[in-house]
Amino acid sequence: MISLIAALAVDRVIGMENAMPWNLPADLAWFKRNTLNKPVIMGRHTWESIGRPLPGRKNIILSSQPGTDDRVTWVKSVDEAIAACGDVPEIMVIGGGRVYEQFLPKAQKLYLTHIDAEVEGDTHFPDYEPDDWESVFSEFHDADAQNSHSYCFEILERR
């Protein structure tokens, strides 16, 4: 099963200049909980913004210009990325925008964090048809001392 995991502000903004323009430790914990011990696929820009392999996960970098870091697996196509994951129950696609666009048609599940923030962004989550998805989990949280904005975790499964 292919799943996408993303944090989205208003207007589906997911990033600005290779960074997330908010401070939500709870979302980072949600991300870790849902990706640990699963292969993660990301684009080169996302890889560069993280700066290191995510521990406890097979890191697969999709790029037309593969790098030389041998701590991760470099691939040039969506099919190659899927094959590099091996026989696993769930593959997690973690961004960025172009990689989400490439995998959305193949995805069966979306793990979304909806952030109540209007922020400037240069990267967006692809538009998706809500009628194609069923919400199977939703959990709202107010902003607090650690988390700069209110947010809602949601899991959607393709109908």
Rank of each mutant, 00 (worst) to 15 (best):
G56C: 07
N59D: 04
I91Y: 06
K38H: 06
W74F: 07
N37P: 02
Y100H: 01
E134Q: 11
R44F: 06
P21V: 05
R44T: 10
R98L: 04
R44A: 13
E157M: 08
Q65P: 04
W30V: 03
L4G: 02
L28C: 02
E120W: 08
V78F: 13
E139I: 07
D144C: 05
I5K: 02
T113G: 00
L156G: 00
K76S: 12
K32V: 07
N34Q: 15
T123L: 02
D131N: 06
I94S: 02
V10S: 08
F140M: 13
A81M: 03
F153A: 03
T46G: 02
A6T: 15
R33K: 14
F137M: 10
C152H: 11
T68V: 11
G51M: 07
G43S: 01
I61L: 12
N34W: 08
D122F: 00
K109R: 10
N147V: 03
D70R: 13
Q146Y: 07
V136E: 08
M16H: 02
W30T: 06
S77C: 13
Q102Y: 12
S64P: 03
R52Y: 07
S64M: 14
G56F: 09
P55A: 14
R159N: 10
A26T: 03
F137Q: 12
P105T: 11
R71E: 13
E48R: 15
I155Y: 03
G97T: 05
D132W: 09
S64L: 15
L36S: 11
A83F: 10
V119G: 03
A143L: 07
S77N: 15
N18W: 05
Y100Q: 01
D144R: 03
S63Q: 06
L62C: 15
H149K: 04
P126W: 04
N34S: 11
P130M: 11
V99P: 00
N23R: 09
N34M: 06
H149M: 01
F103W: 06
S135H: 08
A9H: 01
D142W: 10
R158P: 04
D87G: 11
V78K: 12
R159D: 09
P66A: 14
E134V: 09
D69M: 05
K32G: 04
A9N: 15
G51T: 14
N59G: 08
D87T: 08
Y111A: 00
H141L: 04
V72S: 11
D127Y: 14
L104R: 01
V136Y: 06
D144M: 04
Y128G: 03
D70N: 12
R52M: 15
E101N: 07
S63F: 02
E154F: 08
F153V: 05
E118L: 11
S150K: 07
N34T: 06
A29C: 03
D87Q: 12
R159V: 08
F137K: 09
